[in-house]
Amino acid sequence: MKEKILEVNHLMFAYDRNHQTLKDISIAIYQQEKIAVLGANGAGKTTFFLNLNGVREPTSGEIRYRGELIDRKNINKLRRNVGIVFQDADSQIIASTVKAEVAFGPMNMKLPRAEVEEKTMAAIREMNLEDYTARPPHYLSGGEKKRVSIADILAMDSEIMIFDEPTASLDPVNAQVLEEILDKIEEKGKTILLSTHDVDFAYRFAKRILVFCDGQLIGDGTAQEIFEDEDLLKKANLKKPVFMELYDLLKDRGKIKETTEYPKKISDFALLL
């Protein structure tokens, strides 16, 4: 059994008195999980993320990090260990050079200068940004800015890494590069949560899927469990991934061998044909 890292109990959050944005969310997140968070715009995904990393404070309920109840006195523990990459990289980037941007987090953690340098350059190398260290990040391309934003949280060595719509505005090549980066992050033992509207990406990537609708968590299961639930998909305004629809079509026509698990890659289909 993997170790529980983050626990949310009866989380409620409201931006104003007239509308509850998050409604009684309870969930446990474990070490090295790959979780996709799905739901329509306004379902509460981003607000949920902002509560998880301490940018927002719950109206009621509790968040525990490794068993410790998080409150205003120890909120920085949550912020150090739960990093977030926002959908709009420009809203996250603040420094005048790429190196200064990546070093910002470790410096704020008041680490020794040598350790700041070591963590900064390791993250820059990981994201293949060595040739960009002295360049102003605001003038980089969308894909390059995304890599800088990821380097930001890599340098802080966050245990949980959150990505809010990571493939938004990326072309297909850079989206593929991002998927490869996410795989490398998982190999380092990190826990990854990401929100996306791309159900095909979520199906390929996630071992667990959370579904939000109108501020409520209405689905929590494996990718296959979630995407086989027609009623859930309809309620959340989601659709089946293309590979699942293609498999069902070929199976119904007797063109493919039946299996207990849906294929996720072309190579999986090749084995069944």
Rank of each mutant, 00 (worst) to 15 (best):
E33N: 01
G219P: 01
P58S: 06
A155W: 00
T167L: 03
L78R: 13
S195H: 10
D157C: 02
P112A: 11
D171N: 11
I124R: 03
E3P: 10
P241Q: 05
R79M: 13
E130R: 10
A175N: 07
Y15F: 14
R79G: 11
S149Y: 05
P137S: 06
E258P: 06
K235I: 11
D231C: 11
V173S: 12
A151L: 00
I5W: 13
F205T: 03
Q176E: 09
Q92G: 08
V98K: 01
L233A: 06
I181N: 13
R208L: 11
L50E: 10
K235L: 14
P58M: 06
I5F: 11
I124T: 02
L194S: 09
Q87I: 00
L232V: 04
E68C: 02
K264T: 06
E130P: 09
P241Y: 04
D164N: 06
T191Q: 12
D229C: 10
L22I: 06
G142A: 09
L11I: 10
K99R: 12
A134C: 09
F201M: 15
E261F: 05
I94C: 15
M244S: 00
H197L: 05
G83L: 06
K146A: 10
P58I: 08
A14C: 15
Y65S: 07
G61D: 04
K99F: 13
K119R: 15
N74T: 10
V148S: 03
I266F: 07
N128S: 13
T97Q: 09
V37P: 04
T120P: 01
D252H: 09
D88Q: 13
